[in-house]
């Protein structure tokens, strides 16, 4: 089914009374069945709804964070270094129309309109754990499509060992790029087998609605077993390469942020411990919990790194 990003009409907005009663209903359901993954999570998003199927198999059963937590607390330096900056400043981003350049070691390259790229792609909801390298963590219901499914359309050739993703560079739309806290544009990358792993998700929505600007609209990556900085936002370029991409945080501080950046309780950041994490939204004195290897996805992804020294390749 075609995915379009319609502008919202007043008649489409759910009246508040209806929405509040739905919330009450949802709260009732939640109280009854605390931690079962609910299908069709809804949130008070002002953005258009997306059609999608919940993917219960690849979702965790933990209760997701609140929509406000996910959209008001972001690391997105293109809009400022404070966690509240993206929500305040990202309105200058124009996520549609949007095009993505596909380059490098692939048979199908060129510049594609995002709408065309997504046409006919079924979207799914996956409730994933999210772990920032700074030790805070959330549970987030993303809407997207498997990255492998998208990349396969470009027919990468045998020299494609890595995939590089680049964020938009435009200080007019991204005022944080006027100061050089990082090398712009933001670049991230994955080994091709990591990119083709079924858990890697290309995201276009959140909580059943179109992705808000501050969360990386209109197109962002989610690699749930890696620290959040790998999950590059507002992607304008996908490049298949034979050599390992130069990634933004790795270039900025190679001893602190590795290329792999797999969530790993055994490898500390030089300035803080990674042994535990703090769940955003948890009550005081009950937010810390042990960090899980590969952020809880070890059974699915550990095989990708068989024989590798994860201390050196942090």
């Amino acid at each position: 089914m075609p995915v379009r990003f319609p502008t919202i009409r007043p008649s489409e907005i759910t009246p508040e009374s209806v929405y509040l009663s739905r919330r009450a209903l949802l709260a009732g359901v939640l109280a009854g069945a605390a931690s079962t993954a609910l299908p069709a999570l809804e949130a008070p998003s002002p953005l258009p709804k997306l059609p999608y199927q919940p993917n219960a198999q690849l979702s965790v059963s933990e209760a997701p964070n609140k929509y406000d937590e996910i959209t008001q607390y972001n690391n997105f330096y293109e809009f400022g270094v404070d966690k509240a900056d993206p929500a305040a400043n990202a309105h200058t981003l124009r996520p549609r129309p949007w095009s993505v350049a596909v380059q490098g070691e692939a048979d199908v390259t060129g510049t594609f309109n995002l709408e065309d790229l997504l046409k006919g792609q079924a979207l799914e909801e996956r409730i994933y754990r999210f772990r920032c390298v700074e030790t805070w963590a959330m549970v987030i219901p993303w809407i997207g499509l498997p990255l492998a499914q998208l990349l396969a359309r470009f027919k990468p050739n045998s020299r494609a060992k890595y995939v590089e993703f680049t964020t938009l560079q435009d200080p007019q739309q991204m005022p944080g790029q006027r100061s050089r806290v990082l090398e712009w544009p933001y670049v991230e990358g994955l080994r091709i087998d990591e990119a083709m792993h079924p858990l890697a998700l290309m995201v276009v929505g959140l909580y059943g609605h179109v992705l808000p600007n501050q969360n990386g609209a209109p197109l962002r990556l989610i690699v749930p077993w890696k620290y959040g900085f790998k999950s590059v936002k507002s992607i304008v370029k996908i490049r298949f390469t034979a050599t390992q991409p130069r990634t933004a945080w790795n270039v900025a501080a190679p001893n602190e942020y590795g290329f792999y950046a797999n969530v790993n309780p055994a490898v500390d950041h030089p300035r803080w411990s990674q042994a535990t994490e703090r769940r955003i939204g948890a009550p005081f004195l009950a937010a810390r919990r042990p960090t899980l290897p590969f952020n809880g996805y070890a059974t699915q992804v550990a095989g990708l790194y068989a024989g590798m020294d994860l201390r050196r390749n942090f």
Partner: peptide, 21 residues
């Protein structure tokens, strides 16, 4: 100590030793 490390004294001790800041 109380809200961030949640009174995990072992963590407090090791952070004091390991993190110069």
């Amino acid at each position: 100590v109380v809200l961030d490390l949640e009174l995990n004294w072992r963590a407090v001790g090791s952070e004091i030793v390991k993190r110069p800041y």
